[in-house]
Write a protein that binds this DNA or RNA. Structure first.
Length: 435
RNA sequence: GCCCGGGUGGUGUAGCCCGGCUAGCAUUGGGGCCUGUCGAGCCUCAGACCUGGGUUCAAAUCCCAGCCCGGGCGCCA
């Protein structure tokens, strides 16, 4: 008999409804026993009554523990009497798939909240909580909305290598891996291969993938392994084109979340509304003046620091009533060799900040072979070591640019999470690689 | 990597300043009572001072080291 799947529940007219899930609560009142199960869509109460329910169901559920996995078939009450569940069922059959040990390492019912390290050590149990599942459902919709927007606007998804033969030169520390009989590195950004794909004649691409950073960062906004939505496009006029794409992309992701994750947003108590576009743009060197007015002195030509990011957010909130904003024209000396210069000292290099946190870096890349080589020399790098990358610019390179948005950072800030690990299923940091 | 703060039953905490008697509470777990509970209730039992060293008659409490965790900074997404 083929039933149909509806909200994770198997429907079948003759035998009634079939439900499954993890046991959330058991309340035994002697002659009546309530078993509440939870799955990723709903909570269902099984009501067992002496005299109505077959006696064997009382027997087999006698030693049942919280977090055991069961399946039940029975009649659904048209008017449920249970308050805090979605449905109530009088079971006829109960099948026990797995009995959980008692003394749980954390309580998914959250009667006693566990701390983050405990939760991450026992992540599969933590993930059973509806509010944690809500985070990842929202993240799924966010990425889906972004990908759909990219596809609808002519971008093609590509996969670039995660293992690279030479450490790229962005300054971030890389993980070394044993590659047969020599050393290789895990990418800290798909940047350079995205550019090489552009040189391959693919004009609008994105790479949704993993990046690794071997930095000893102990902060609520860093991971050793994180994912990014990395976009690259050819034949741009200037870096403004990448900014227009980036803000629409973010908006499209948020629009999708608002459309299909109302329930999850409510669980997390988040009111999400679409930001206005275009996002405000601040530029160096005016950034120095803004900061100085706010009492923060940054030397002309230097990069700003974490405190400045927050100050600039304050400024943007007051003057533009916005939370997203771009910072453009960073000093060339604090950016990598491949960015396009602007007026000698600055670069067409753009960061996107949201609520005071850097979400992405990007901008226009240098596509002129001679200029690229001279910038490598200016940075004090060995042109020979980058030849594997630069030599293809000698055979025809279009103007191009792009950006990479940190997925977990975006999700973290959209959902007001206070640690990026909350937005990661199994986060990796310098200490933690298990589970 | 640097600077702060912290590790008490399975989970979350009180106690630490000012060392001292069965280390308190909640939740969880075992047993019992209850036919509509819903953070069920009531009775009862069980379970802990991160590791190592030092000071002292006596250390969860004071000192040192290590390990682990959290926050800030740097770096970045």
């Amino acid at each position: 008999m083929g039933g149909k799947w509806q909200k994770g529940v198997h429907m079948d007219k003759e035998s009634g409804v079939k439900v499954h899930g993890w046991v959330s609560e058991i309340r035994d009142l002697g002659k009546v026993r309530f078993i509440v199960i939870r799955n990723w869509n709903e909570k269902v109460q099984l009501t067992l009554k002496r005299g109505v329910t077959p006696d064997n169901l009382f027997d087999i559920t006698e030693g049942l523990t919280q977090e055991s996995v069961i399946e039940a078939t029975g009649r659904e009450l048209k008017e449920k009497r249970a308050k805090s569940v979605d449905r109530e069922i009088l079971p006829r059959i109960i099948k026990i798939h797995s009995v959980s040990q008692s003394k749980l390492p954390l309580d998914p019912n959250w009667k006693v909240p566990a701390l983050l390290p405990t939760r991450l050590d026992n992540r599969p149990l933590d993930l059973r909580r509806p509010e944690i599942q809500a985070i990842f459902k929202i993240e799924f919709s966010l990425i889906n909305g972004m990908e759909d927007w990219l596809r609808n606007n002519g971008f093609m998804r590509v996969f670039t290598p995660a293992i690279i033969g030479a450490a790229s030169e962005s300054g971030a520390e890389v993980f070394k891996v044993q590659y047969f009989n020599r050393n290789a590195y895990l990418r800290q950004d798909p940047q350079l291969h995205r550019q090489l794909t552009i040189l391959g004649g693919f004009e609008r691409i994105y790479d949704l993938g993993v990046n690794w950073r071997a930095e000893l960062s102990h902060t609520p906004r860093h991971l050793s392994e994180f994912r990014s939505m990395a976009v690259e496009m050819a034949f741009i006029e200037n870096e403004q084109d990448t900014m227009r794409v980036e803000e629409e992309l973010i908006k499209a992701g948020m629009r999708r979340v608002i459309e299909e994750r109302k329930k999850e947003l409510r669980i997390l108590n988040i009111e999400m509304s679409l930001p206005e576009t275009p996002f405000p743009e601040l530029r160096f060197p005016q950034v120095y003046d803004i900061l100085e007015e706010m009492g923060k002195e940054i030397r002309y030509g230097d990069d700003y620091d974490t405190e400045s990011e927050k100050l600039l957010w304050e400024y943007i909130k007051q003057d533009y009533h916005a939370n997203f904003f771009f910072v453009n024209r960073f000093p060339f000396k604090v950016k990598p060799f491949y960015v396009m210069k602007e007026g000698g000292m600055w670069a067409r290099s753009v960061d996107l900040l949201y609520k005071g946190l850097e979400l992405s870096s990007g901008g226009q890349r240098e596509h002129r072979y001679d200029v690229l080589i001279s910038q490598i020399i200016e940075k004090g790098l060995d042109p020979k070591s980058l030849e594997w990358f630069t030599k293809f610019f000698a055979y025809g390179a279009p103007p191009h640019g792009g950006f990479a948005i940190g997925i977990e950072r975006l999700a973290m800030k959209l959902l007001d999470l206070n640690n990026i690990k909350e937005a990661t299923l199994f986060p990796r940091d310098p200490e933690k690689i298990l589970p």
